[in-house]
Design a protein around this nucleic acid. Structure first.
Ligand code: MN
Ligand code: MN
Ligand code: ZN
Ligand code: ZN
Lengths: 124, 124
DNA sequence: AATATTAATGCGACTTTGTTGCAATAATAA
DNA sequence: TTATTATTGCAACAAAGTCGCATTAATATT
């Protein structure tokens, strides 16, 4: 499947690139510059995720947040790093800090999801 | 509000105590010994959380998982530890491993949520 | 033991988040 | 300019979770 350049994709990517932080679908839909259907936005976001352009974080509120990660430039499997969610401005950002751990025998780790939450510098 | 002892509460707590692992509402409803309405189970679980009897983990699937944590015995703020989610048997367990991190100036961390996922020893 | 109080329950309606099928549209290739 | 097919909008759907309200039942009181 060859990808096509569309207004919806450009707008989403532009918005996500401007902000340094991860946004929920809801926030994206509100702040985006073009009109786009909910399903379209989700499809665009999921496609970006598949292509490794943006990545997805699920927060403690159970919602998905999407961001263009600064640290992992195109790498398929980026270094596992902490994410920080500000509960005041409701955004998530990537922290440089990487995650270190060791686990008991027998466990096979396929994914790492570490989310700190609180208030960010902008909201203090 | 004084708490009352009811079949639903006893059944949920019994099930959660037997298993070492965190269970979703769905799993609890299926395996519980009494018939209980969905709303009732959620209310019971949330009450337990308020009372500090069980605690809640949100997984990458966006669902809530509930467990009687082994490590934090009644402590209000337990030590931050990793959780592990087996995507095969769909359970979550507390790992002894604690979470270490340092964050930039200006951030105020109020909550820590670290979830590893993959397959557990039982499912290999 | 009978009665009063009110926490807990069941039911249904509702919200939110996210996905999917399908026909119509539009970006790219030929 | 035409053909191909990725993308979109729409509506319907699914899953997770919450809430109002009348009813039930656990505890306290008499
Ligand atoms: Mn990141
Ligand atoms: Mn735990
Ligand atoms: Zn903030
Ligand atoms: Zn398992």
């Amino acid at each position: 499947m060859k990808r096509r350049k569309t207004p919806a994709k450009e707008a989403v990517l532009k918005l996500l690139s401007q902000r340094q932080k991860a946004m929920s679908h809801d926030a994206i839909e509100q702040e985006i510059e073009v009109d786009a259907n909910r399903a379209t936005i989700y499809r665009v976001l999921n496609q970006f995720c598949d292509d490794g352009i943006v990545h997805k974080v699920v927060a403690e509120d159970g919602k998905q947040y999407f961001a263009v990660c600064m640290d992992c430039k195109g790498e398929k499997i980026p270094n596992h790093h902490f994410h920080f969610r500000c509960t005041t401005c409701d955004t998530i950002e990537c922290l440089g800090e990487s995650v270190h751990f060791s686990i008991p025998e027998g466990y096979r780790v396929k994914d790492v999801n570490c989310l700190l939450s609180g208030t960010c510098p902008d909201c203090t």
